[in-house]
Design a protein around this nucleic acid. Structure first.
Length: 211
DNA sequence: AGTGCGATTGACT
DNA sequence: GTCAATCGCACTA
């Protein structure tokens, strides 16, 4: 900790503070929109790595595409925690996907983090993602967890507290938030539950989808 | 105990 | 544009 302008500053995390749970929207769609521009912070032995959220998807209550649709199971129980907890699962046996739980405790719903704009610790991300173009480093839900080394061990993490993985406040002002249908699902496929920064080069999805 | 299937990615035509 | 990799887990019996 250091001191500047009479305020206590957390040097370790560039003065960024965790989101307060009380400020998180409980509603899943509101949370998906709210999280655009916020920062995912990963604390690793090598140092801090972080990225600004530029794309999310809402998996709402009663959503046939949501993992909580058929009730609580061993895998999806983190979705039923109070807002601001991590739900991490393995997709296609290949990619870990990071979600933020939403809704009141006992209600299963959440927000998928689909893309991040790299901020701090880019060399740390490249340790596992080779000499990839900056633009592609965390463009996609499986890529960002790979870059930040997020896996099932972080399932259930409280993201509103500093630790191995947490959510920090906005890095700077965000641009226009647009919405579209969600990517890669078949059920409830026509709902506009994907949110993204329209002008960000760090979002996934095709040109036509992002227009 | 066996089966089928992804909220994806990277390699390749 | 197409397609296979790969595995934890939910579901059925």
């Amino acid at each position: 900790m250091g001191r500047a302008n009479g305020l206590r500053i957390n040097c370790r995390t560039n003065g960024r503070l965790p989101l307060a749970r009380s400020e998180l929207p409980i509603d899943t769609v509101a949370l998906a929109r709210y999280l655009i521009g916020k920062v995912v912070v990963r604390e690793l032995p090598e140092g801090i790595a972080s990225g600004r959220i530029v794309e999310t998807e809402a998996y709402v209550v009663g959503d046939a595409a949501g993992h909580a649709y058929r009730g609580m199971t061993r895998r999806n129980r983190s979705l039923f925690l109070e807002p601001g907890h991590a739900y991490v699962y393995l997709a296609y046996g290949i990619s870990h996907l990071l979600n933020v739980s939403s809704e009141m405790p006992g209600i299963g719903a959440g927000v998928l983090i689909r893309a991040l704009e790299p901020l701090e610790g880019i060399p740390i991300m490249r340790l596992h993602r080779r000499a990839e173009r900056l633009r592609d480093l965390m463009r996609g839900p499986g890529r960002l967890t790979s870059a930040l080394r997020i896996d099932r061990r972080l399932d259930g993490t409280d993201l509103c507290r500093e630790g191995q993985l947490w959510l920090g406040s906005d890095d700077h002002k965000s641009g226009e938030v647009a919405q579209s249908i969600r990517i890669g699902i078949s059920r409830d496929a026509n709902r506009l539950l994907r949110f993204y920064l329209r002008d960000s080069p760090f979002v996934s999805g095709s040109r036509s989808l992002n227009r």
